[in-house]
Design a binder for these strands. Structure first.
Lengths: 91, 91
DNA sequence: CAGATATTTTGAAATTCGTCAAAATATCAA
DNA sequence: TTGATATTTTGACGAATTTCAAAATATCTG
């Protein structure tokens, strides 16, 4: 439904980097933060944007919060991309 | 190469609408403008962003300028998407 | 050339975005 | 409870984005 949130979420390089890091498996906010030269507060903001787009899920484990890709939404993203790029007739 | 421009270009709903309209075939700037409740100047700015991302091509035909999808870049876009979303192991 | 049409460019205003520092929240351990 | 750790939220700020109105550019017609 909220396709705009997805495109907006993908528009920032740091957020795309987060997604790529999560392809290697779930990671805590702190572990992800090590890969960035940025405040944890700023990263947390990016997590929120990715969550709003339903691209990642998070789960508290003790004092840390584990982020992971929401793989179930990836078919929807693929559909969005097909909608934009896929429906072209034979040139 | 400049993958960021592509994601940034897709982040705006008006630009995505332009791409969808162009799926129906090439159109002049004026024809495209009819579909929007926006100044032609603003639309022109969006054309520039799409051109910078290499998503559209334009060609002058008399006093008008015809925009069309740059289909040759779509494989690159697909590759970008696969890079972000495709590399996940069997669930 | 002058005027009309189609489009872009410029300059400025309003909004959104990314970031930081600091404060707040939540959990664990003693 | 107190203190330490992990993370988020808040508030502020500068930079980037979107938009408009107006000026500029390019092409065609007479």
């Amino acid at each position: 439904m909220p396709s705009h949130d997805v495109f907006k979420a993908l528009a920032d390089p740091s957020r795309r980097k987060i997604l790529k890091l999560l392809q290697g498996g779930s990671k805590t906010a702190g572990t992800l933060a090590e890969a960035f030269d940025m405040t944890k507060g700023s990263l947390s903001h990016h997590f929120n944007v990715l969550k709003a787009a339903d691209l990642v899920r998070c789960e508290r484990r003790g004092q840390q919060i584990v982020y992971s890709l929401n793989t179930s939404v990836f078919e929807d993203v693929a559909a969005l991309m097909l909608d934009l790029f896929g429906t072209r007739r034979a040139k």
